[in-house]
Design a binder for these strands. Structure first.
Lengths: 222, 222, 222, 222
DNA sequence: GATGAATGAGAGTTCATTCAT
DNA sequence: GATGAATGAACTCTCATTCAT
């Protein structure tokens, strides 16, 4: 008594990803049941296994694909930029824009790392490291060319990312400021933070974390 | 065949709270099993029910007690202060200090609100509102007395709290800056943000969230 | 998007039988999944249903065909033999030879009878009865003609079959004795057992089972 | 809404073992569901886990305890016997008696070895080896003292065990022969097989398996 | 206040089987 | 004759919770 109604064929995987994204965002990975997910998609829970191999793998794929996409689009955004200031501006603009439109992916990628099994965790953290490295390199180039001035590149990298990622905390579409205004504000904020002679108070605070701080936005792992 | 080993008598509840705090912080409320918790405490899972009534209630109590303690200590910190600037400085100093020493409670109170049942959720949100209200009143008084200048008190309240709470994201004990330095930096940052004539860039950004933003640090609820 | 690789057309059924035989022999009927079987054959599990109607029917067909082949070949082996002793020798030689070359079929036919549904079970047991009947008739003729001497034909039939079938327990190709030697040894053993004046000890033991013993090599059914 | 009816406390484990023994004997390990087992015991399937840790472990424990008991009782049966012939007689008598009264355990221990996970399989096979070793040592002593004459001790060990264990195939309580008669018959059979000057035909056949034959009564493993 | 054994629901996952393509 | 996606039932196992002892 096979397929009656429900979503067919190639569209199902996309529906699973979408519903999975939403449910994990709303309830958390552990609290989302595959029966719930399947119901959302309109299939039986067993049928999910035609598309995913385990629940864990679904989480992994969602997070991994998100970070890969982030990297891909970042590289496109940086393409052609030569001077460190241009690159940094492009980085900020891209990061902020992306985080405003992909709130769920970003949230999950930050908050559900602890739900990844060791092997998957390693892989994701490596990818995240690659993303951070892009920023670190921009800062390094800027410092080398005398355009930027930061006490510690590693620390500055984390601080800037924390600042930028922080907007997922409060941003909601339809707020008072336009996206463009938010992007512009962050560009100025970050640029002024690394430009020689910038306001010292804020810079000092942002530089605080010790270089070994890794688990931004979540508890220590294991 | 009663009690063999395990924690005895009156200390058990405290052990449950402590272990619960740690386990929820590390794995999340949904992913923590009461068997795990009981094992950590050194008793059988059934014995937990001599101390708590449900798992949900344990979460609720942990969060509620945390916020109550926050309120209690805040009021003590504000006690005797008259001028808005003194009050604000005291608020910032207290908030930052508290968040540095109670990372787990703070994290859970921010990230596990979605795990609360509606009734409990309402109660916690009300308590949180009371805490926010303290800050809003300080700002209001300052504006009324001409000492502060903010575009929108509500928005400024959220922005300041977001800024301050953000430090749980990166703070680790033993980092480069002393606690006092971090407190001082935040005091300056916030005070300069509400003092007439302060840097416009940053202030504008912090004012961004629309007044109806509620679920800071987590996804929308249900 | 049909057939990519995998076994083509008319050979597939044969591949299914072969793989099924091996998997049931190794893991047992209940423990073998059709996905496993399909993978072994190189097709999708759904495709099996172009060749078999149910998993149960596959087992049934394998067992039934085995016993039918056994009967067919037995009759060919007995063909032309007139005297009971010649018939019995031929029976033993055939049975032993066949069991040495078709270990899997024999094993399954003995051990998976309990996995057959009632209807199929009846049919197989009837076929098995026909095979046993051949031996019983030989013995009966021998007794009638005064060539054999057995206390009870029914019991002797079971005992001889148990003795002969027992070799699947220990026989492995490449062992110390040649097939011919093994056949010869069994011929002597059985013949001496039914010939008047044979060794009493062994015969008495072999005659032990009561006539209603049916489920040789397995537990009682249902 | 805890315990209503059903079997309580310390008797439950015994009931699980008993029911498990019966169900595995009748349907096979793979085909027995824990729901079935629980129903038989009169509890919910989840409650089984207060007594066993996994289904696999239940099988393992049943088989292991059976072989350990076998060993324990064997040693008691051999206790005090000095001469090889006495020991061998005692071995046969014990083995035959035990196999007649513990048909289920014996059957499972022979037929479900393939259902054991590698680690458990190793352990059981080691135990079985210890049992076989007892017989091998008796034969070895007999040969050394000139009382027995066997071509190959290893082969003789397997052959004798196969012969003795074979009675589980046809023995049913209430058959024509008394237990004592069956024991006596097997004693004679085995003793005559290892006594110098015994009938050559039968001995040769029983000696057939090559020394590396291991998986008696079942298919090769993996 | 603790244990140990129970419940009943539900978890993730696998199964045999069906059928439009 | 094969695929791939579906069903619905069943699987082993875990969960929060209860309660007689």
């Amino acid at each position: 008594m096979a397929r009656t109604i429900g979503s067919q064929g190639p569209k199902t995987m996309e529906a699973i990803r979408k519903a999975g994204l939403r449910l994990i965002f709303e309830h958390g990975y552990a609290a989302m049941s595959l029966r719930q997910l399947a119901a959302e998609v309109g299939i039986q829970s067993g049928s999910l296994y035609n598309h995913i191999s385990t629940k864990q793998e679904l989480l992994f794929v969602l997070v991994r694909d998100h970070i890969n996409e982030l990297l891909r689009q970042l590289d496109r955004a940086l393409d052609g930029k030569q001077r460190p200031a241009d690159k940094l501006r492009a980085f900020v603009a891209f990061h902020v824009s992306y985080h405003m439109t992909r709130k769920r992916e970003v949230f999950i990628a930050n908050s559900e790392l602890r739900s990844l099994e060791p092997k998957n965790y390693e892989e994701i953290v490596a990818l995240r490291g690659a993303y951070e490295q892009r920023l670190a390199e921009i800062l390094g180039q800027g410092v080398a060319e005398g355009e930027f001035e930061v006490v510690d590149i590693q620390v500055a990298t984390f601080a800037i990312l924390a600042l930028l990622t922080g907007l997922t905390t409060w941003y909601r579409p339809g707020g008072r400021l336009t996206k463009e205004a938010i992007v512009a504000a962050h560009e100025k904020l970050v640029l002024s933070g690394v430009t020689p002679g910038a306001k010292p108070d804020q810079a000092r605070v942002l530089r605080t974390p010790s270089p070994d701080v890794r688990a931004r936005g979540g508890p220590e792992r294991r």
